[in-house]
């Protein structure tokens, strides 16, 4: 199984978009290398706006470029883009409904050993609380590319939470991402795994392991965090227990978003898998995934426990006589 860095799809698609539309510009905080914008800069030097190491200004400049009729893709490490410039994201983008595309690079714990200052495991909680802001976490190169095109075609602010972690191809090359639509990647009647970003491939691997245990797990790719696919969530809730899996804190992220829908529509047993509300210790991304049970084995364990727990509770509530 070959693995890919989605930044390649990101930069190739951005160059293709810019070729077709002169309004496309890139904005960076001295992150041209880490945001993979070198080719963009080479091809469209006049449309590469590097504001230096200044995230608040970067997001404000993005809103101004949009005011001037351009379509800015504002790129920076997600931890700084969202954390440092959160008020600009809220006011200049969300509240103003500016046509700005915020691209949070290297989100989650991609920076591993560099530590919690560089981890971006709060960004979904922050951004999905902001009205008007569309929030997307693509899972593979095809979805990264398609989500980027969808963001460019849509008039309004979008936060694309991107990763540098290697992932396999999950979707076919002609896959079309749609806001508010979550594809079912696998069907199964015992438990639904709802994941996004780097965790989708891991959830699929876990589902294969669970099958060997005799547990039928469905997998949904909830890449569109805002708007959510409420129908898919409801379908999962009606079917049985739900395990959410995200490279994010369990406070206010994907799991929180899904739970908000579940408890207000069709309460189902849930378990939220992610970083458990603490700053991560030192370690590589892979070490941290294993440490916090975000590897296929950890997901399998959590899902199996959840299925067992639901069966036990169902039995206690409605004992077979």
């Amino acid at each position: 199984m070959s693995l890919h860095d989605c930044r390649k799809a990101f930069s190739e698609t951005l160059v293709a978009l810019a070729e077709a539309d002169p309004r496309i510009v890139a904005v960076a905080n001295d992150s041209i290398g880490s945001s993979n914008l070198k080719e963009f800069k080479k091809r469209f030097p006049e449309r590469m706006v590097n504001v230096g190491i200044a995230e608040q200004n970067m997001v404000g400049v993005g809103a101004g470029l949009a005011n001037g009729g351009l379509i800015p893709f504002v790129c920076g490490a997600s931890c700084f883009l969202t954390g440092r410039a959160l008020e600009q994201v809220k006011v200049d983008c969300g509240y103003s409904r500016s046509n700005v595309k915020l691209c949070g690079m290297s989100s989650g714990v991609a920076y591993g050993e560099l530590g919690p200052t560089h981890h971006s495991i709060e960004d979904l909680a922050w951004t999905r609380a902001i009205a008007n802001l569309t929030v997307v976490v693509p899972a593979d190169p095809a979805e990264t590319s398609s989500a980027l095109r969808a963001a460019a075609a849509y008039e309004g602010p979008v936060f694309l939470r991107l990763s540098r972690m290697p992932v396999p191809d999950i979707h076919p090359a002609d896959y079309r991402f749609e806001f508010g639509r979550a594809p079912w990647l696998r069907r199964g009647s015992d438990v639904t795994l709802i994941a996004n970003g780097t965790m989708v491939a891991r959830a699929l691997e876990a589902a294969a392991l669970l099958e060997a245990d005799g547990i039928k797990a469905a997998v949904v790719n909830m890449s569109s965090v805002r708007p959510l696919d409420r129908e898919a969530i409801l379908e999962a809730a009606v079917a049985g227990p739900i395990l959410t899996v995200e490279e994010h804190t369990v406070v206010g992220g994907l799991g929180g978003a899904v739970a908000e829908v579940v408890v207000q529509s069709h309460p189902a047993r849930m378990r939220l898998l992610g970083f458990p509300g603490e700053f991560a210790p030192t370690g590589s991304p892979e070490f941290l995934f294993e440490h916090f049970g975000l590897n296929p084995e950890g997901i399998r364990r959590a899902a199996a426990q959840l299925v067992e727990e639901s069966a036990r509770v169902a039995h206690e509530t409605h004992p077979v006589r």
Binding site: Q56, A63, G64, N67, G69, V91
Partner: peptide, 21 residues
């Protein structure tokens, strides 16, 4: 032209608009 209120937002937006021109 811009939703302001929190201070220090206008000039970055203005710089972006001027850059667009």
């Amino acid at each position: 032209e811009a939703n302001t209120g929190p201070l220090g937002h206008g000039l970055p937006i203005g710089a972006g608009a001027a850059k667009a021109a």
